[in-house]
Amino acid sequence: MNVLRPVAALALCGALLTPPALAHEGHDDAPAAPTGQAPPRFALESEAFELVGVLQGQRLAIYLDRHASNEPVNDARIELQLDEARYSAQPHGNGEYEVMLPQPLPAGDVAVTATLALGQEADLLAGDLHIEQAAHADPAAMPAWRRYGPWAAGALALVAVLGLALSRRKGSASVEGARA
């Protein structure tokens, strides 16, 4: 019996199914690629102010600064309207404010209007917040190797088993032919 073919088939399957070696800490020259999606955000600006909002679940973080100097703005009163709902932002740090939403915002475009008041200054800013569907809900967002990898591994295993079975069958047929 020719043992070389089944061993070669198993070696090929093993080589194809072995995960690639990955560099560990300190041995990776390339910067890490970002994983997952960036949280939804909006940026509103006027001649006096810049306001950026970042949605993290039910928390909306708001960053407010002066347009000309990029200096953080503290002690502002910010009233926010998201579609039809109105919220008052609470101070949360140096130029930072936050709004806790009672429920997550639905996917799609949300109209955003911010009314700012700081001493004698007042401003009205408007824009949109675009919220994507969750990435894990969309199978097309999954990397191709994760979608097709299990099928490819199964096909390779099937080819290896069929190759082994055929080589054994040929081996037993040649032994029977030699006996006759």
Rank of each mutant, 00 (worst) to 15 (best):
V159A: 09
L164M: 02
C13L: 14
P72Y: 03
Q81P: 00
L82R: 03
S172E: 11
V99H: 01
P20M: 13
A43L: 00
G154L: 12
L82S: 00
L12N: 04
M100V: 09
M100H: 07
A11Q: 12
A114R: 03
V3T: 14
R66G: 01
T113Y: 02
V99I: 03
P34R: 14
A33Y: 13
P143Y: 13
Q37N: 08
L156F: 12
E79G: 10
D28F: 10
D109A: 06
E79K: 12
V99Y: 06
G36N: 13
P150C: 13
A173S: 04
L10V: 12
A144Q: 13
V54N: 05
K170L: 00
A68D: 10
V112E: 03
A126W: 04
V175N: 09
Q133Y: 03
V159F: 07
G149F: 13
A48G: 06
A15L: 15
P102N: 09
P139V: 11
P91L: 08
R66T: 05
A76L: 02
Q81W: 01
A8G: 09
H27D: 13
E176N: 10
Y97H: 05
R5S: 06
N74K: 09
A8P: 05
R5G: 03
D109T: 06
S174M: 01
F42A: 05
A180L: 11
Y87D: 01
V7W: 12
Y87S: 04
R168E: 07
R66C: 01
A21L: 15
H24D: 11
P143G: 12
G127P: 05
G154D: 09
G14V: 15
A76R: 02
A61C: 02
G119C: 11
E45L: 05
D138N: 09
T113R: 04
G95P: 06
D123F: 09
R41I: 00
A11F: 15
R5M: 06
G36S: 09
F42H: 06
V52H: 00
L16C: 14
I62L: 11
A111Q: 09
L10F: 11
A126T: 10
V7C: 10
R179N: 13
P102W: 05
A9Q: 00
I78Q: 05
T113D: 03
E84G: 06
A165H: 00
M142C: 13
A32M: 12
L166E: 01
V52M: 02
Y63R: 03
G163A: 07
G154C: 06
A180W: 12
F42P: 02
V159S: 00
C13N: 07
Q58Y: 10
Q120C: 13
S46K: 00
I62D: 01
D123L: 12
R147I: 15
R147L: 15
S69W: 08
D75C: 02
A33R: 15
A61V: 01
R77N: 03
A152K: 13
P150D: 12
P102V: 11
G53L: 01
V73A: 01
A152W: 15
N94G: 07
Y148E: 10
V159M: 07
N74H: 04
T115Y: 08
L162H: 00
T18K: 15
G119V: 08
L129E: 02
N2Q: 06
A134K: 11
A9H: 01
A117C: 02
A152G: 13
L105A: 04
A107C: 06
L164K: 00
V3A: 14
P6Y: 07
H67R: 12
P20H: 15
